[in-house]
Computed example of a mutant assay.
Amino acid sequence: MYTEMDYYELLEVERGCDEGALKTAYRKLAMRWHPDRNPGDSEAESRFKAINEAYDVLKDPQKRAAYDRFGHAAFRNGGGGAGGGGNPFGDSAPFSDIFSDIFDQFMGGGGRGRRAGPQRGADIRHDLQVSFEDAFHGIEMDLAVDVAVSCDHCAGTGAKPGARAQNCGTCGGRGQVRMQNGMFIVERTCPSCHGSGSVISDPCEHCGGEGRVERRKSLKVKIPPGVDDGTRIRLAGEGEAGPRGGEAGDLYLFIHMKPHAIWKRDGTTLFAQVPMSFVDAALGGDISIPGIDRKPVDVKVPAGTQTGRQFRVRGRGMPALNGHGVGDLVVQVELETPTKLNARQKELLEEFRGTAGGSEGCPRSKGFWDRLKGAWDELTD
Score class of each variant (00 low, 15 high):
Ile223Leu: 14
Val221Met: 03
Lys373Asp: 15
Glu19Lys: 09
Asp152Ser: 07
Val227Tyr: 03
Ser218Glu: 13
Gly237Cys: 04
Ala241Ser: 15
Gly173Tyr: 01
Gly79Ile: 01
Gly304Ile: 13
Ser92Ile: 09
Ile51Asn: 01
Gly80Asn: 08
Arg232Phe: 05
Leu379Met: 14
Thr339Gly: 14
Pro225Leu: 02
Lys220Asp: 12
Met318Arg: 00
Ile124Arg: 02
Cys207His: 02
Gly78Ile: 10
Gly209Pro: 05
Gln345Trp: 06
Asp134Thr: 04
Asp101His: 13
Tyr26Arg: 07
Ile289Trp: 02
Gly109Cys: 04
Arg309Cys: 10
Pro259Ser: 07
Phe95Gln: 09
Gln180Ser: 12
Asp123Phe: 01
Val213Met: 03
Gln105Met: 14
Ala25Arg: 04
Glu351Val: 10
Gly81Val: 06
Pro243Tyr: 01
Gly182Pro: 06
Arg265Cys: 00
Gly308Leu: 12
Pro275Arg: 03
Gly237Gln: 04
Pro35Val: 05
Ile102Gln: 07
Trp376Tyr: 12
Met318Phe: 05
Glu14Trp: 04
Ala30Val: 11
Phe48Val: 04
Trp376Ser: 13
Ala163Glu: 05
Val279Gly: 06
Gly169Met: 05
Thr305Gln: 10
Asp250Ser: 05
Gly291Pro: 09
Val274Ser: 06
Tyr7Leu: 12
Met1Tyr: 10
Thr231Ser: 14
Gln180Asn: 12
Leu372Lys: 14
Gly16His: 08
Arg212Ala: 09
Asp142Val: 05
Asp370Met: 08
Met257Ile: 11
Phe311Val: 13
Asp60Glu: 14
Gly246Ile: 04
Leu253Gly: 05
Gly121Arg: 00
Ala236Gly: 07
Ile262Arg: 11
Asp41Glu: 09
Asp229Met: 07
Ala82Met: 13
Arg312Thr: 15
Lys222Met: 09
Thr24Arg: 12
His324Asn: 15
Leu143Pro: 01
Thr307Arg: 01
Ala272Lys: 00
Glu19Met: 10
Phe99Val: 15
Asp68Glu: 15
Phe136Trp: 15
Ile200Lys: 00
Gly323Gln: 12
Leu128Trp: 05
Ala30Met: 07
Asp123Val: 09
Asn77Ser: 15
Pro319Met: 09
Thr189Asp: 06
Val130Tyr: 00
Ala74Asn: 03
Gly308Val: 11
Glu12Thr: 08
His126Leu: 07
Pro203Ala: 02
Glu9His: 09
Gly117His: 06
Asp18Ile: 03
Ala122Gln: 13
Ile200Gln: 00
Gly246Asp: 06
Pro259Met: 04
Gly304Ala: 05
Leu29Glu: 01
Asp56Asn: 12
Ala30Lys: 02
Gly110Ser: 09
His260Cys: 07
Phe103Asn: 08
Ser46Cys: 10
Gly173Met: 02
Glu14Gln: 10
Asp104Trp: 06
Ala303Met: 11
His206Ser: 08
Cys193Arg: 00
Ser92Val: 02
Asp370Lys: 10
Met257Arg: 12
Phe132Gln: 06
Met141Arg: 14
Thr339Ile: 11
Gly239Ile: 01
Glu351Asp: 14
Tyr7Glu: 01
Ala74Trp: 05
Ser365His: 09
Lys366Ala: 13
Asp280Arg: 08
Glu336Tyr: 03
Gly317Ile: 00
Pro296Ile: 07
Arg294Lys: 15
Val313His: 04
Ile185Thr: 14
His260Gln: 07
Thr380Asp: 10
Leu283Phe: 06
Ser288Gly: 05
Pro118Val: 06
Asn181Gly: 07
Arg178Pro: 01
Ile262Tyr: 10
Ile289Ser: 02
Pro224Ser: 04
Ala148Asn: 03
Arg244Ser: 00
His324Ala: 15
